[in-house]
Simulated assay, not measured.
Amino acid sequence: MDQAKINVLLDREAIRDCLYRYCRGIDRADERALRSAYWPDANDSHGAYRGSAEGFIRFALGVFQTGSRNIHQITNILIDFTTPAEAAVESYFTALQRGPDEDGEVRQMLLCGRYCDLFQKREGEWRIAERTVIYDWLEEQAPPALLEADRFGARQPIGAHHPDDPVYALAKHRVLLGMDAERFRT
């Protein structure tokens, strides 16, 4: 395989990794991960929100404070390189979102759709420059009546916001062991 094909594979993987960081950022209320998915000058058309990615991030951070719960899954990632430094990316998502509405009543929604993103590569890094969220399915669901501790029972640990989610302890463990990404690139 020649170097050009290897570079395309590496670029594809970097774009996928960025999409996954976005999901972790939203689901774990991890501001750093969320910000790492967007370029500072990016725009986002996200349902009722339309504006800068910075504005969307501030909006999301406000939602995180309500104790909301989000689960996002990304599938069917199609990447079309329009130039060596730009890619049109369509990725399907399923999101289960639960949290209080404006009146404080807990709502739960199942959302399915697609992220249609313009990715740009700047200084060797791929991030979202423009995002439009297309909704294909919306279903309001009855939120569970039981508290999470009662519903999950012995199924522990329960996912949590940053930094309390167990995944962050795993990341700290890896750093202590010296198992960073650079080690695996050689």
Rank of each mutant, 00 (worst) to 15 (best):
M1S: 12
M1T: 03
Q3Y: 08
K5C: 08
I6E: 03
L10E: 11
L19S: 00
R21Y: 10
C23V: 15
G25S: 09
G25M: 02
D27Q: 04
R28D: 00
R32V: 14
A33N: 08
A33Q: 06
A37L: 04
Y38F: 15
W39D: 03
N43D: 05
D44M: 04
S45E: 10
G51Q: 12
S52V: 10
R58Y: 14
F59Y: 12
A60M: 14
Q65R: 13
T66W: 11
T66F: 04
T66G: 01
G67E: 09
G67M: 11
R69C: 05
I71Y: 07
H72W: 08
H72E: 01
T75P: 02
I77M: 10
P84D: 15
E86L: 05
E90K: 07
S91A: 10
Q97Y: 13
G99H: 01
G99T: 07
D101I: 07
D101A: 06
G104V: 11
V106I: 08
M109E: 02
G113F: 02
Y115W: 14
F119H: 11
Q120W: 01
Q120T: 13
R122S: 09
E123Y: 12
E123Q: 15
G124Y: 11
E125N: 07
E125I: 09
W126I: 00
I128P: 00
A129V: 01
A129D: 05
R131Q: 09
R131H: 02
R131K: 11
T132D: 04
D136T: 14
D136K: 06
L138I: 07
E140I: 02
Q141K: 13
P144C: 06
A145D: 07
L146S: 10
L147E: 04
L147T: 13
A149C: 09
A149W: 13
A149P: 03
A149H: 10
D150N: 03
R151F: 11
F152V: 09
G153A: 05
R155S: 10
H161L: 05
P163C: 03
P163K: 07
D164N: 14
D165G: 10
Y168G: 02
A169K: 12
L170M: 09
K172Q: 08
K172F: 10
H173L: 11
H173A: 14
R174Q: 10
V175T: 13
V175K: 03
V175W: 04
V175P: 00
L176Q: 12
L177M: 14
L177E: 11
G178N: 09
M179Y: 14
D180G: 14
D180T: 15
E182C: 04
F184Y: 14
F184W: 12
T186G: 15
